[in-house]
Simulated assay, not measured.
Amino acid sequence: MSVKGKTAIITGSNSGIGLGIAEELAKAGAKVILNSFTDNEEDHALAERIGKAHGVEARYIKADMSKPDECRALVEQAGACDILVNNAGIQHVAGIEEFPNEKWDAIIAINLSSAFHTTAAALPIMRKSGWGRVINVASAHGLRASPFKSAYVAAKHGVVGLTKVTALETAQEPITANAICPGYVLTPLVEAQIPDTMKEYDMSREDVIKDVMLTRQPSKEFATVEQLGGTALYLCSDAAAQVTGTTISVDGGWTAM
Rank of each mutant, 00 (worst) to 15 (best):
S2V: 07
K6T: 08
I10D: 03
T11R: 01
T11M: 03
N14Y: 01
G18Q: 11
G18K: 10
G18L: 03
L19V: 07
I21P: 06
A26S: 14
A26D: 14
A28L: 06
K31W: 04
V32H: 08
I33L: 04
I33C: 06
T38V: 14
D39Y: 06
E42D: 15
A45G: 00
L46Q: 11
A47I: 09
R49A: 09
I50K: 08
H54V: 12
E57C: 11
A58S: 02
R59M: 10
K62I: 07
A63I: 15
D64G: 11
M65D: 07
D69S: 14
D69L: 13
D69M: 07
C71K: 08
R72H: 01
L74C: 02
V75S: 02
V75A: 00
G79P: 06
V85H: 04
G89Q: 09
H92M: 01
H92Q: 09
H92R: 10
H92D: 02
A94N: 14
F99V: 01
P100E: 11
W104C: 05
I107P: 00
A109V: 03
A109W: 07
S114F: 01
A115Y: 13
F116L: 13
F116T: 11
T119G: 14
A120V: 15
A120R: 13
A120P: 04
P124A: 05
I125H: 08
S129H: 14
G132S: 10
R133I: 01
R133V: 03
I135E: 05
A138Y: 07
S139K: 10
A140C: 06
A140S: 13
A145Y: 10
S146D: 15
K149Y: 00
S150M: 13
S150Q: 12
A154N: 04
A154I: 03
K156D: 02
K156Q: 02
L162D: 12
T163Q: 06
T166E: 09
E169M: 03
E169S: 04
T170H: 00
E173Y: 12
P174H: 08
P174W: 06
I175A: 05
T176G: 06
A177K: 09
A177M: 04
I180M: 00
P182C: 05
P182G: 03
G183M: 03
G183I: 06
V185D: 03
A192L: 05
D196K: 12
D196A: 13
T197P: 00
T197Q: 08
M198Y: 11
E200D: 02
E200F: 09
Y201A: 04
Y201Q: 12
D202N: 14
D202F: 02
V208N: 10
D211T: 09
D211Q: 15
M213F: 06
Q217F: 04
K220H: 10
E221Y: 09
F222A: 09
F222D: 07
T224D: 00
E226R: 15
G229L: 00
G229Y: 02
G229D: 06
G229P: 05
A232W: 03
A232H: 04
Y234H: 14
Y234D: 07
L235C: 09
S237V: 02
A241C: 12
V243K: 03
G245D: 10
I248H: 11
I248Y: 08
S249C: 04
G253Y: 11
A256K: 12
M257V: 13
